[in-house]
Write a protein that binds this DNA or RNA. Structure first.
Length: 463
RNA sequence: GGAGGCAUGGCCAAGUGGUAAGGCAGGAGCCUGCAAAGCUCUUAUCCCCAGUUCAAAUCUGGGUGCCUCCUCCA
């Protein structure tokens, strides 16, 4: 399997540190606001990687942190008159719910920054001892000049960074490029050898990664906007503290754009996941994300989501229809199937999900032509590895009852259930009363249910 | 100013040397009482210019346009 490594800027053969085991760390959210489509893209992408690695038989440990100590959480808490902890907890729950709605698997470990303070302090101490960091007036800064590999991930020449110097000016720093590992904060801080304070943003990932996965890990992933300074700084901290390589494969996903611009909080041009889920289903969002290669930008539009919805529906229909006559065969040897091989080949090429969708459509076509167990199993299993959820969406009883009531009312009749209406319509059709049959179908349509007349009778489905 | 990336049919998008996957939308046909779904068929020479090569969307050079990072950001 080949993966693109941002560090080397090359697509490399993936060889885990320990045979058959993968340690992956993904930069998680700062929980101060609702997650938006950009987050959806990021976490869907890495969810697919996680699923695929597991599917390939690796024993994967997926760690995704939660940043629950941060300036934005503090300002939000002050604005809302809540404690920072309340704010963090609220948005963490909202985030988890969004992830679940998107059908993202839960990471194996989801550590909180505030629960890893001891480890952060330990790293700071090590860095100070080794001369890579210094404490001033309750702050601790990383001495960038002490790490000669600094800038290698982001390919930023040091001089360029220095002259760019949009970094915060501070009299306390030896060099404007130095970044905070610990910040003095009497009000919201935690105890430390340097006084009461809060951790810098970057140190938490170094700490959590080391604590839960070890000094060197296989994969570290996140949005491309984290390359600098976040990941660059993580490398500096971790490698200086541990004296060994921090990450073997750095992976970064591209942005979601809207009107060709990056969707982001600061630009205010974002759509929250929950908002989008009001109009489109989770499979459609995933499909939309997976049509593009994960490193490319993906432009949001209603047209794109609508197209994705149509594509998903085609796959769903094929599976759903096939399930009526065929069964999923857990014992099918996937390796002997050429479609499966195509799928693996595509995924092995740095997660070419776009190609895997073509495999799915090919299978949908085959399944529609021949609804056998083999075709059904293949399309279902591959969909599952990509994280689609094509299990029959069960409409709840009450909802269906409501719809039936609406339909009955419109038809001025007293139908109790679906069968009564359908047999009523069947009678109309048998009598070739097409006007009535069509009218009933229109009423169903208005209620959000599609009626399909097939050779074997009429079927219905929620739109 | 420095660093990185992108440009493929109406829209989205694969494809890194041998003559363009797939989806959506559109068109034609089959099926159907009509629809829906499905099936079949159907629309490109790859931003521009120059070069390398028997052969380039794919390599090189030069343009043009767009995006991202260098500040919090997935």
């Amino acid at each position: 399997m080949k993966l693109y490594n941002s560090y080397s800027q090359k697509t490399e053969e993936f060889v885990p540190l320990e045979e058959n085991k993968v340690k992956m760390y993904v930069c998680g959210p700062t929980v101060y606001d609702s997650a938006h489509l950009g987050h959806a893209r990021c976490y869907i992408t890495w969810d697919v990687l996680y699923r695929y690695l597991k599917f390939k038989g690796y024993e994967v440990t997926y760690c995704r942190n939660v940043t629950d100590v941060d300036d934005k959480i503090l300002s939000k808490s002050q604005k809302e008159g809540k404690t920072p902890d309340e704010v963090a907890r609220f948005y963490y729950q909202a985030f988890s719910k969004s992830m679940e709605s998107l059908n993202n698997l839960k990471p194996d470990i989801e550590p909180f920054a505030t629960k890893t303070l001891g480890e952060m302090i330990a790293i700071n101490k090590q860095l100070i001892e080794k001369g890579h960091a210094y404490a001033v007036d309750g702050d601790v800064y990383f001495r960038v000049k002490s790490f000669d590999k600094y800038g290698q991930l982001s390919k930023q020449p040091l001089e360029a960074l220095e002259s760019g110097a949009r970094v915060e000016e501070s009299d306390l720093k030896e060099n404007p490029m130095d970044f905070a590992l610990w910040k003095h904060d009497e009000k919201f801080g935690y105890k430390s050898p340097w006084g009461v304070g809060r951790p810098g943003w970057h140190i938490e990932c170094s700490a959590m990664s080391r604590k839960y996965l070890g000094n060197t890990i296989d994969i570290h992933a996140g949005g491309a906007d984290l390359i600098f300074p976040h990941h660059e700084n993580e490398i500096a901290q971790s490698e200086c503290a541990n004296g060994q390589q921090f990450v073997k494969y750095w992976m970064h996903n591209g942005f979601v754009t809207i009107n060709k611009e990056k969707m982001s909080k600061s630009l205010g041009n974002f759509l929250t996941i929950d908002k989008i889920l009001e109009n489109y289903d989770a499979n459609a969002i995933r499909f939309f994300i997976l049509t593009n290669h994960y490193r490319m930008p993906v432009e949001f539009s209603d047209e794109a989501l609508t197209a994705a919805t149509a594509g998903v529906k085609r796959l769903y229909t094929a599976i759903n229809e096939a399930r009526k006559t065929a069964k999923i065969d857990e014992n099918l040897n996937l390796n002997t199937c050429e479609e499966y091989q195509e799928f693996v080949e595509a995924m092995d090429e740095d997660l070419n999900t776009s190609k895997t969708l073509a495999v799915l459509f090919d299978l949908a076509n085959k399944t529609n032509k021949e609804q056998n167990s083999r075709n059904l199993t293949l399309i279902y299993k591959i969909s599952e590895v990509l994280g689609f959820n094509f299990d029959k969406v069960k409409i709840c009883e009450e909802e269906l009852k409501e719809k039936i009531d609406v339909i009955a009312k419109k038809l001025s009749a007293d139908f109790k259930n679906m069968n009564e209406i359908l047999s009523f319509r069947k009678t109309a059709r048998d009598e070739k009363n097409w006007d009535l049959a069509d009218k009933i179908r229109i009423v169903f349509d208005e209620a959000g249910i599609t009626l399909k007349d097939t050779k074997d009778g009429t079927t219905w489905e929620i739109k």
